[in-house]
Amino acid sequence: MASVISIVGLTKTYASGVEALRPIDLDIEKGEIFALLGPNGAGKTTLISIVCGIVTATTGSVTADGHDIVRDYRAARMKIGLVPQELHTDSFETVWATVTFSRGLFGKPPSPGHIEKVLRDLSLWDKRDAKVQELSGGMKRRVMIAKALSHEPEILFLDEPTAGVDVELRRDMWGLVRELREGGVTIILTTHYIEEAEEMADRVGVISKGELIVVEEKNALMKKLGRKTLTLNLAEPLAALPGGLDAWALELKAEGHELEHVFDAQAEATGVPALLARLGALGIGWKDLNTRQSSLEDIFVGLVSERRGGAA
């Protein structure tokens, strides 16, 4: 697939001396939904801000749809829509006026029909004549999305679009993002809700302390790094792990009532039956068992803490 955004050797050191981005190389493919994950302060917003022209990079280059974002900024920016992390809206303007303004600002001729469609899609149509300051926070978030969509961008950046948003709006937003993707729009989103990335993204990038530590197809990532956890509810509590179980990664939980075994998804065929057979041989009875596939969140926490451990 063709890449629509190409980031090469991008670094950013703020005037304060903070190294927000170490060299980053990343290609975003046309039409995909890319989720950028990472803890607070990892550099997600910085990365997005550079691509959108709000922050100047220290070194490196970015092209959007083949246009260099600095030399050919006009062509590059016309393709890009941005919903920033923070809520920033013009208080005194009406919803209609502020969204129409954005379309003009991005160099597009007026199109009341398109603005109407965007407002309807975001359930803002009834509020079109309301002043932005009269809207609730979630509604303001919708207005910012409407502004970003007003000029029909081909690439959409959503920096934590669902932070502080109720469940219903989050569902709406997911629906909208899918619909946009079907229309050929490339979407890059950051989020702290891992289930969001899990639900929506085609690919996931994990950024930590300014470094991209993983970029992977979501499914492949889940498979590769995904772990399963087997939990056995024991018939009799154990005070300590008996000998002869060293071959398995085991831990006693719930004051010895539960035995937990964490294993690689790939190794599942070999490890578990053998473990159960061994327990039977040792006379350890169990009442119930369940297995759980680890979520992206577990993977992500694992990756980040692994890094931290490695760096320390």
């Binding site: 022209g53 709000i54 062509a75 923070e86 920033h88 013009d90 600002l105 991005f106």
Partner: peptide, 14 residues
């Protein structure tokens, strides 16, 4: 001051 400058900075305006 209000932060809405982000839009101007990200717009194709010289």
């Amino acid at each position: 001051w209000a932060g809405t400058i982000y839009e101007l900075l990200s717009a194709p305006v010289s």
